[in-house]
Simulated assay, not measured.
Amino acid sequence: MNRTALVTGASSGIGEATAKALLADGYTVYAAARRLDRMAGLAAAGVRPIALDLIDDASMVAAVEKILGETGRIDVLVNNAGYGSYGALEDVPLEEARRQFEVNLFGAARLCQLVLPAMRTQKGGRIVNVSSIGGKGGEPFGAWYHATKFALEGLSDSLRMELIPFGIDVIVIEPGAIRTEWGGIAHESMLRMSGDTAYGPYARRHARLHERAGTRMASPPEVVARIIARAVASKRPRTRYPAGGGARWILLIQRFLTDRMQDRLMWRVSQGGA
C-alpha cells in the first residue's frame, strides 16, 4: 500500500529533514512551504514540493485537494511550520501576535480539519504536531510564541481523545534547541521589538542567550526528524516525545521546580547570570 505524508515548513530545518526521513521510509512525501524554489533539493531527491501558505485558507484547501487527487490518501500530517517572534508583551503589536497564532496554531488546526475526512475514511492516520519545550514553560520576551505552543499542546490533547473512535493518533513533538533558522528570527525580532524600549537592556541580554543556545547546545534537525519517523512507525506511539537540544533534561527539571523557582532560574539564565 502506498503511504502518503504531508510535511509543512519543509523548506529548511526540521521540516526538510523530516521529509527526507519519511521518504527513506517509503512514503510518498509532499513537502509544503510558501517558496517552492527553496525545495529544489528535496524535489531532486524524490520529494514532491507543494505550495502552502498557512495564513491563506484557499492555499491550504488547494494543497490537500491536490494530494488527495494524486494519491487518494493522506496517512501522515506533520504540522511543523511555525516561527518565534519575540519581544516584551508590552512592545509587540497585537497584529504580530495574531499572525503568530495564525501560523503556529490556526494553520495547523485548519490542516487537521482538511485531512481528517480522508483519514476517517481510511480508518487510520497520524497527526504529528511539532510543539516545543516552550509549550511547557515560559521565558522572558517570548510570551506570544509560548502562548501558541501551550495552545498547540492543549489542542493536541483534546483532538487525540476525539479521534479515538477512528483509529487516528495525535503525537506531540517537543524539540529543545535545534540548529535551524528559528533562532535567528527570534533573535532579530527581540531586538527589533524591545531592543530600544524600557526593556532594552534585558532584551539585549536575552537575545545573546539565544545566540549561545544556537551554537552550544543545539542539536541538528535530523535528530528531531528521526524521532518523528520513529513515532509515526510505532504501532502505539507515545503521546509526547522530547527531542534534542537538552529537551528531556529541561522538561524533567521543570517537573520538580515550583513556578517561582522556575521564574528565578529562567531570569538568571536569561540575563547571563546577572
Score class of each variant (00 low, 15 high):
Leu209Met: 13
Gln100Asp: 11
Ser158Thr: 09
Ala274Lys: 14
Asp57Leu: 14
Ile168Ser: 06
Leu111Asn: 00
Lys20Tyr: 07
Gly125Trp: 04
Val47Glu: 02
Ala147Gln: 05
Gln271Tyr: 09
Gly82Asp: 01
Ala33Val: 11
Asp56Cys: 01
Ser194Gly: 05
Leu191His: 02
Ser132Tyr: 00
Asp157Pro: 08
Tyr86Ala: 15
Cys112Lys: 05
Val130Ile: 09
Arg160Pro: 05
Leu209Tyr: 06
Cys112Val: 13
Thr258Met: 08
Thr18Trp: 00
Leu155Tyr: 15
Ser59Leu: 11
Gly15Trp: 05
Ala31Arg: 10
Arg120Val: 08
Ile14Leu: 03
Met261His: 14
Met1Ile: 10
Leu116Val: 04
Ala51Gln: 11
Lys149Tyr: 03
Arg208Ile: 12
Glu153Met: 01
Lys136Trp: 09
Leu163Phe: 04
Asn2Gln: 14
Phe150Lys: 04
Pro220Cys: 07
Val29Lys: 02
Lys66His: 15
Arg110Trp: 00
Gly107Thr: 09
Glu222Gly: 15
Leu163Thr: 06
Ile164Pro: 09
Arg48Tyr: 07
Arg120Gln: 12
Ser234His: 14
Leu105Gln: 03
Ala24Asp: 08
Ala62Pro: 01
Met266Leu: 12
Arg230Asn: 09
Gly124Glu: 10
Ala43Glu: 15
Thr180Trp: 02
Met193Lys: 13
Arg255His: 13
Ser219Lys: 05
Asp263Gly: 04
Ala198Leu: 13
Thr148Tyr: 04
Arg98Cys: 03
Ala243Pro: 00
Ser85Trp: 12
Phe106Met: 13
Val47Trp: 06
Val130Leu: 04
Ala177Asp: 14
Ile168Met: 04
Met217Cys: 12
Thr71Gly: 08
Lys123Tyr: 02
Ser59Val: 10
Tyr202Cys: 11
Asp259Leu: 14
Ala88Asn: 03
Gly124Thr: 12
Leu89Val: 10
Ala33Leu: 11
Ala143Tyr: 08
Arg34Trp: 06
Leu116Met: 13
Ala207Gln: 09
Ser85Leu: 14
Tyr86Thr: 12
Ala225Glu: 01
Asp37Asn: 14
Leu68Phe: 04
Gly195Leu: 04
Leu252Gly: 11
Gly124Tyr: 03
Ile253Asp: 15
Leu105Gly: 01
Ala233Asp: 12
Pro221Cys: 13
Tyr199Ile: 05
Asp263Lys: 10
Gly272Cys: 08
Phe141Arg: 02
Arg248Pro: 06
Leu152Lys: 06
Leu22Phe: 03
Ala147Thr: 07
Glu153Arg: 06
Arg260Pro: 11
Gly176Gln: 02
Arg35Pro: 08
Ala21Arg: 05
Thr121Pro: 08
Phe256Thr: 08
Met190His: 02
Arg226Phe: 02
Gly87Pro: 11
Leu191Phe: 00
Glu96Gln: 14
Asp91Lys: 10
Ser85Cys: 09
Met190Cys: 10
Arg3Leu: 12
Lys235Glu: 15
Gly72Leu: 06
Gly184Cys: 10
Leu89Met: 08
Leu265Met: 15
Val269Ser: 07
Asp196Val: 10
Ala108His: 01
Gly244Asn: 05
Met119Cys: 00
Phe150Asp: 03
Ala19Leu: 04
Arg268Pro: 01
Ala62Arg: 14
Glu65Gly: 01
Ala274Gln: 14
